[in-house]
């Protein structure tokens, strides 16, 4: 693979130590709240499902999509998990992925974990969820509406998450570029990545809704009736791909 991967995982040393610590504390508090609130969406019965969704996010972050010749990005998945499993469980999923990537794969710095969780797991998921919630009427009306909703939510989530980076950089940026330069670079890049994120999120949500609409959290009205496993129609490749 000769392309450059434009990812959003910050390394150590991009923001200074106090900023890292502040965002670390904010993230720990918020993820603690998410762990409590996720219980409402997710009794112990369904924790294995959340585990597999997290494994899915982990695998999906390894799939690169092209932006321009020579540059590729990978999915952040904030809006995707918010729409599929809800914001609280979604925040937990992305946080776990980021922590594991940082501890076991040296992807994203240890001290940058707080800022990375803040940008991708908190801002990313909740902005995606807020947009999707605001457009829920449209999403429920038709398949096309759902796809448009997923695209817009993912695009906005990516751009706003990159603004989180700009905010942290403005507070405690430790490099020589001005905030204006960083703002232009980050928002420019992430508007492009956001289009890719939007297309993939929309197609993924569309594909899931076509086969198992009961799995899409955004479309749920009442608590889901327990459904026997393996009853989903057509697990074959041909019907969804």
């Amino acid at each position: 693979m000769s392309t450059t991967d434009v990812a959003m995982h910050m390394s150590d040393g991009i923001v200074n130590a106090p900023t890292s610590l502040i965002f670390g504390v904010i993230s720990i508090l918020f993820v603690g709240l998410a762990a409590v609130r996720a219980r409402a969406d997710l009794d112990d019965r369904t924790a294995p499902m959340a585990g597999l969704v997290t494994a899915f996010v982990f695998a999906v972050q390894m799939i690169n999509f092209p932006i321009l010749p020579g540059a590729s990005g990978h999915l952040l998945g904030g809006a995707l998990v918010a729409i599929l499993v809800g914001p609280w469980v979604g925040t937990l999923c992305i946080t776990i992925v980021l922590v594991v990537q940082s501890l076991l794969f040296a992807d994203g710095g240890l001290t940058a974990l707080g800022t990375n969780v803040f940008n991708m797991a908190i801002i990313g998921v909740f902005v995606g969820w807020a947009v999707a919630r605001a457009m829920r009427g449209l999403a429920r009306r038709s398949r096309r509406g759902l796809i448009v909703t997923a695209f817009v939510a993912a695009f906005v989530n990516t751009v706003v998450a990159s603004l989180g980076f700009v905010l942290e950089y403005a507070i405690g940026g430790a490099a020589g570029a001005t905030t204006g330069t960083v703002l232009t670079l980050m928002v420019g890049f992430h508007a492009l990545i956001g289009i890719g994120e939007g297309i993939i999120t929309a197609a993924t949500v569309g594909a899931v809704a076509a086969v198992r609409p009961d799995l899409v959290h955004l479309l749920r009205t009442a608590p889901r009736v327990a459904q026997p496993a393996g009853r989903g129609p057509a697990r074959g490749e041909g019907s969804t791909a």
Binding site: R45, T46, P48, M49, A50, G51, L52, V53, A55, F56, A59, V60, I63, F65, P66, I67, L68, P69, L75, L84, L192, I195, G196, I199, I200, A202, A203, T204, V205, G206, A207, V208, V211, R212, L215, A229, G230, G232, R235, E237, T240, A241
Partner: peptide
């Protein structure tokens, strides 16, 4: 794929990956 608008096949693959992951989760849970 080289351009953004060619991401469709990747995306549909991710969709079926999610369904397979979730259904595996249901089986693992049982």
């Amino acid at each position: 794929p080289r351009f953004l608008w060619q991401a469709g096949a990747t995306a549909r693959g991710i969709g079926s990956l999610f369904i397979r992951s979730y259904e595996r989760g249901e089986r693992v849970h049982l």
